[in-house]
Design a binder for these strands. Structure first.
Lengths: 225, 225
DNA sequence: AAATTAATTTAGATATGGCTAAAATCACTT
DNA sequence: AAGTGATTTTAGCCATATCTAAATTAATTT
């Protein structure tokens, strides 16, 4: 088994890789909240263990072995998040923090039991896909709500879980995964977005809209006024 | 917060204190599976933090502060054990291992949720008392099954959870907490014990009988043949 | 009371995963 | 092509929690 630290590095690298393609020392440093120099020495170690490849000054890339471990940790994380929400009613803005710790000590047996109790789910409470045991993951094709135009509508696919405050804010307007939304208007200069969620109308700040991802986008894109 | 290591030391000290009164360096070393020298240096640290008192070559004793932390960890451990057994059907010989890891990363909020979901339980699956949040614990008055005499009967109060094999063995004859048992005969020289559990009759080895604790013991003690 | 044995402590080493400060490299501008 | 600023790496240090080997203290035996 790998240390908690190693698991966290691999997970972070996987996520950055998916979002930005390449993963720099600084990006990792910021995401993990450690000094760049610490990242460099960990990279060296992970490279020796063949969990990633590294070209000096050029960033890292997970090997197959590294990705496998990353996906196992992510599977733990997301199963735990969903389990806590479903079975114990933990609010969706708190499940992430709890899962951050528990994911590293969850046994495979308990993982399987939770998976079965939840009916082999495919999405966590934030809409993120839960990798299967063998490391298959189906990422959704979605765009940030911030990129939508007036008149377009779609379905909330996924919401970033990095900030509990953001989740509470988003939750207040009912923007949970699988919810239909329609963009009514968009203010210029990265301004707020007015949208319909069911019968209700909400105004959402531009920054928050970066973190809400929409799938199944349809409708004639109108002008940004 | 304290490190996982510190929590484990405090828990171990609490348990040894309860069982043997005083807690020697060697006893801790054995219980924790670390070298005696390592125990000495940790004792020094815990003593500086005022979590225990130590007289050189004379063993240690938890302070009130140390005991409070020990009981918090034990509460976590036992709530987790019961939760896993009840909610996820984890067999009673596996819950201990899972709880050993999880207990150190459980939030107070989740502790409360599990406690509520279980209806504020007072015993874990092995019959051990679950301390309350404020650190109150009600230990049962019980004797080892090995000390019972033919003709006596009683109720299983608690079973040691230190060895999964033992738990499976004990489970096979239905010796779960709250089960009535009657001692039929006891072989001499610390020999096996024949007992009735419900309608069934079982023979139990003397060593295993050291780890099963009986309360409410009644009946005329007969001779050990 | 001295010698032996057992328990405990001290001293010094190791691995992990952080840190800061300084050096090296890269990327961009002029 | 050289200079500047940002990024990355190197070098060396620190804390935690282990270890082994040696020294000390306590307990027991003769």
């Amino acid at each position: 088994m790998y240390t908690e630290s190693i698991e966290n590095y691999l997970k972070a690298i996987y996520e950055l890789q998916r979002e930005w393609g390449k993963v720099s020392t600084n990006a990792l440093s910021e995401k993990l909240g450690v000094a760049p120099a610490s990242v460099t020495s960990m990279i060296k170690k992970l490279s020796e263990k063949k969990l990633l490849t590294h070209k000096r000054y050029q960033g890292v890339k997970l090997t197959r072995a590294g990705q496998k471990i990353a996906l196992e940790v992510i599977r733990h994380h997301r199963l735990i998040e969903l389990y806590l929400a479903e079975a114990l009613g933990v609010p969706w803005d708190q499940v992430h923090e709890e899962a951050e710790k528990w994911e590293h000590v969850l046994s495979e047996d308990l993982e399987d039991r939770m998976d079965a109790a939840l009916g082999h789910p495919t999405r966590d409470p934030h809409g993120s896909p839960i990798p299967s045991r063998d490391g298959t993951i189906i990422e959704l094709d979605s765009i940030p709500l911030a990129d939508m135009r007036p008149g377009q509508h779609g379905v909330v696919a996924e919401v970033s879980d990095h900030d509990p405050n953001l989740l509470r804010y988003i939750g207040k307007m009912g923007l949970y995964p699988k919810t239909r939304v329609k963009v009514v208007s968009v203010e210029p200069f990265s301004g707020p977005i007015t949208l319909k969620v069911g019968d209700a109308s909400h105004v959402l700040g531009a920054e928050a809209a970066q973190y809400v991802f929409i799938t199944d986008v349809k409708g004639n894109p109108g002008e940004v006024i």
